[in-house]
Amino acid sequence: MIRRPAAPPETLVPGVALVVVLITFFCTPLMSGRALTAFDVYNTFQGLAQLGLLTLGLGLTMIAGEFDLSVAGTYVLGGMLAVRTGQSSAILGIVLAVGAGAAIGAVQGGIIARLRIPSLPVTLATYVALLGLTSAMSGGLSVTYTNTGATLWMDRHIAGIFSPPSLITLTGFVIAAAVFGGTRLGREIRAIGGDRRASRVAGVRVERGLVGLFTASGSLAALSGALFSYSYAAANPNPGLQPLILATVGCLVGGVSLVGGRGLPAGLLAGALSVALLGQVDAITAIPDYYTELLYAALLGVIVAVDAPGLRRGLDRLKARAATIRTPDRRP
């Protein structure tokens, strides 16, 4: 069966998006009237640190053809858990947060793989439940992180443009890329997303793979939330859907398709970086938010069109009709 034409979107989409956004970024002095500084780059990477690992986790499940809405909940829970338990030892907080994220992901992945149930409603329910759990832990209020030593360490400048969270985020992507490109796991994840039946016939352990992926996405989301809370010295029990939406945009701009089977960690990095750069462009130029929103809408609109089989059928139909009209009618 012919499924989809060749797969350049996974490199083309993030490549083009990143180049466009970079050009915009370097043009910001024209609007703001001040030159770009290393600090702007630092801030961009801070933005990447905020959403990068979340994007990576979400993207990995999307490559396997699943959609893990619950990462938004795990993100929030991870932040809160790290702040609550890491007041004296930052590392302990992170370990507990990541452990909880992994456990949540593993349980969810087990249910989804075992029962072959669509992931969206399950993870949506988990999201709501985790939001509630976090809120219950904190009494619905923001909790401040008093370990100033850790917060200061988080905000250190390394080589002028990096900070520990942004380096951790980049490391996460490097590891993911290495696993993806260097082991058979990457191939199997994409196969699971591309054609689950064929993967089973070929001998891929589909269920095991799914559990692993959900565990990974849970851990990454929790880590992401923990780092974010530490560096902002506070955990917010309900940041709304914004992190999830931006991470999804990062994934889609990163060349991942919700149908599955397509995408690479490098593309996800490009997608997350594009989102972070746009956020920074916003901050530098102080343009109204709606420019960014409309830009996102346009970007996603293009992505929708690329992935719409009905649209492709319509084009086929037009082409065939044109071909029919060109050939002369033999009948009166």
Partner: peptide, 29 residues
């Protein structure tokens, strides 16, 4: 969604941005 079989999740995220953006634009935020 109906005629092009577009993915509802991606499409509605895009529509959310578009609707929210246009609303802020017109209302001035």
């Amino acid at each position: 969604i109906g005629f092009w079989t577009a993915n509802p999740i991606v499409l509605t995220i895009a529509a959310g941005f578009a609707i929210g953006g246009v609303a802020t634009w017109i209302s001035g935020g």
